[in-house]
Design a binder for these strands. Structure first.
Lengths: 215, 215
DNA sequence: GTTGCAGTTCAACGATCGTTGCACTAGACT
DNA sequence: AGTCTAGTGCAACGATCGTTGAACTGCAAC
């Protein structure tokens, strides 16, 4: 057969990804997860060794894929602009677009994963260490590219700008629905196309504004 | 005496605020909270009626104060600019500055409260409904002021811009420490002055960039 | 056919959870 | 003095939690 069936490990990762994204780490029980996955409770400890390692495995599974795609696009825009540095808009696009494209076209698993990222990113808990471990190398590369794209900017401003950038992104990924309420239905949190059209311009303009800031 | 002693309700609210901010709703037990507050476990149900109502009370306690101060400053900048609409920078400042000033000068309670806001804002859980209830009226007023300050902008762009704005704010309030790591200590997540100097310019420039976006 | 092992199932452990019923205390009021 | 009541303290409830040990399954190797 062309497609092999999902293994127990994959079933557990999928179910955990979905439920951790919805209710967080402490709000999701292993019985919830194994029930959703349709496997026995004890298999979590057999395959992953516990609840926390399962959570870590969920976070790391798609992280490598995302990093690879981001770095690929960054290299692309750098090459297209060579020998000059890539523009701020292009670098920002290489950072956002993999997420937004996966979100729009790559199935519900990625959707849950990004919701989970939004959660973990803003929670002052141990899970954030896992995020740093998975993403910091890639992020540093993007910050270097941003600094190159903003010749007048102080590095501190770019670091803070990255902080604002990722905050804007993660809140959008959380799809809180507040946007829908505040705009009386004019905008929808789940409208990835609308997000994609606006997030890049907002962030690029913000970074340039920071770069021209008077100290 | 000049200062009355903290009541049991206040002790519980303070302890819950601190611990919910650190470990979230499900990650904090009532025994943690009553232990921190130094009161009996049963008093939570006596004074608040349960864990969820306690959480709601924590969220709402400082919300009214924050709304009042924000609206006061918004009226201030509007009056200063009248009869022209207040500038984008001034409106954004009226939205951010109360938080940043409370954060810097108003004690650890406000600090915990903002960390908790950052948590709740990005969590896809029931707590967000409480946030909408507390803040939506004020936020709508600010969005109106932003639309007035950006004559060329489509309302959709401003709504999305507000979404990015509050995302940048809440991630900064979460003080994740990732900024410290990524910048090798050059920037510190807890540096409110550095945040205050940069968040406004970034967001104002981002909003203006959105307003000039080509559809 | 027997052995071995990765994978699975079942049942139960001790711990901790939110909640509750009841007795007790102290101050206000008659 | 006696009565009432808001507030507190104590102990326990049933439920659910993450984890574990032991038995069982099916398939591959010899």
């Amino acid at each position: 057969m062309a497609r092999s069936k999902r293994t127990t490990k994959e079933k557990l990762l999928d179910a955990a990804e979905k439920l951790f994204a919805r209710r967080g780490f402490h709000g999701t029980s292993l019985r919830d997860i194994t029930g959703e996955a349709g496997v026995d409770l004890a298999l979590v400890n057999y395959h992953f060794g516990g609840k926390k390692p399962l959570f870590a495995a969920v976070l790391e599974r798609r992280g490598a894929v995302l990093n690879e795609e981001r770095l690929r696009r960054l290299a692309e825009v750098r090459q297209a602009a060579a020998p000059r540095p890539a523009s701020t808009e292009a670098v920002v696009g290489a950072f956002f677009d993999p997420i937004l494209d996966f979100l729009a076209h790559a199935g519900p698993g990625w959707h849950s994963y990004f919701t989970l990222l939004a959660w973990v990113n803003n929670s002052p808990e141990w899970g954030r260490r896992l995020m740093s471990k998975t993403f910091n190398d890639t992020v540093r590369e993007f910050i270097r590219a941003l600094i190159d794209s903003l010749p007048g900017a102080a590095p501190e401003d770019v670091f803070w700008g990255y902080n604002f950038l990722t905050g804007a992104l993660t809140l959008s990924l959380a799809e809180t629905g507040r946007l829908d309420i505040l705009s009386d239905g004019l905008c929808r949190s789940t409208d990835v196309a609308a997000l994609k059209a606006r997030l890049g311009p907002f962030v690029a303009a913000g970074l340039k504004g920071l770069a021209q800031r008077q100290a």
